[in-house]
Simulated scan of single mutants.
Amino acid sequence: KEQRVLSRRIKGSNRWEKQRLVVSRLTSKVANQRKDWLHKKAFALANCYDMIVVEDIDLRAIGQNKYYAKNQQDNGFGNFRLYLKYKLEQRGKYFVKAPKDFASTQLCSTCGYKNTSLKGNVDIREWDCPSCGTHHDRDINSAFNLKHYGERYTREVILPQIVVA
C-alpha cells in the first residue's frame, strides 16, 4: 500500500522523499523478519538432528526459470542452507550436500531402480516402480533416498575419519 502511495508522488519532491523512507523502512523490516525466521528454523533443526542431508540444487538455474524463480527467491533457500550449515558445524554436527547427479526423486527407495522417465518432468508427483511395483510419492521417496545417502556417507566418509583420528 505504501509503495502505491509512493508511485503517485512527484519524484524528487519532499513528500516523495518522506514516502520513500517509509517504504524503505517497511522493506527492511520484512527482510529482517524473513531472515529471523530462517535463523530460527535453522537453529531448531540444528538442535534436533546430528546430520542433515540436502540436495545440491543449482539455485541459479532455478532462479532463471520463469515458473520457480519468484518462489525460490522469496523463500531464501540459499541463505537457509548457509545458516543451517554453520549452525550445524558450530555444534560439531554434519551438513552433507548430495551431489547434483544424485537422482533422489528418480530412484526407487525400495529396490534402487532408476526411473529415467521422470527426469526433468516435475509435474509427475507420484509414480509406481516398474521393477518392484512400489507406489511412491516423489517428495517422500526423495527424502528416503537422501536418508540412505546420508547413511552411506556416514559409513564411507565420516566413520573412517573417526577411526584414523
Rank of each mutant, 00 (worst) to 15 (best):
K1I: 11
K1P: 10
R4A: 14
L6F: 03
L6Q: 02
L6K: 05
L6G: 08
S7A: 10
I10P: 00
K11Q: 02
K11T: 03
K11I: 00
G12Q: 07
G12V: 13
R15I: 07
R15A: 14
R15G: 11
W16T: 10
E17Y: 08
E17S: 15
Q19D: 06
R20F: 12
V22D: 04
V22M: 12
V23Q: 09
V23I: 13
S24Q: 13
S24M: 07
R25I: 09
L26E: 11
K29A: 12
V30L: 14
A31F: 13
N32A: 14
N32Y: 05
N32E: 13
N32F: 08
N32R: 13
Q33V: 12
K35V: 00
W37M: 14
L38H: 08
L38E: 12
K40V: 01
K40G: 02
K41T: 15
F43N: 11
A44L: 07
A46K: 05
A46F: 11
N47P: 01
C48W: 02
Y49K: 02
Y49R: 01
Y49M: 03
M51E: 02
M51H: 01
V53S: 10
V54T: 13
V54G: 02
D58Q: 09
I62P: 01
I62V: 14
Y67P: 00
Y67G: 00
Y68H: 08
A69D: 04
K70I: 02
Q72H: 06
Q72S: 15
Q73D: 13
F77R: 07
F77S: 04
G78A: 12
G78L: 01
L82V: 12
Y83H: 08
K85N: 12
Y86L: 05
K87T: 09
L88A: 11
E89C: 07
Q90M: 15
R91Y: 08
Y94N: 13
F95D: 09
V96H: 05
V96N: 04
V96L: 05
V96A: 09
K97N: 02
K97Q: 04
A98T: 00
A98G: 04
K100Q: 12
A103Y: 02
A103C: 07
S104C: 05
Q106C: 00
L107V: 04
L107F: 04
L107R: 01
C111H: 00
Y113I: 05
K114A: 05
T116Q: 06
K119C: 01
K119H: 05
K119M: 05
N121Y: 03
N121C: 11
E126S: 14
C129A: 10
P130Y: 00
P130R: 00
C132N: 08
H135M: 06
R138H: 09
I140T: 15
S142Q: 09
S142R: 09
S142A: 15
S142V: 12
F144V: 04
F144S: 12
K147G: 03
G150D: 10
E151S: 14
Y153I: 14
T154I: 12
T154P: 03
V157H: 10
I158Q: 03
Q161Y: 07
Q161L: 14
V163Q: 11
V164Q: 13
V164G: 01
A165T: 10
A165L: 06
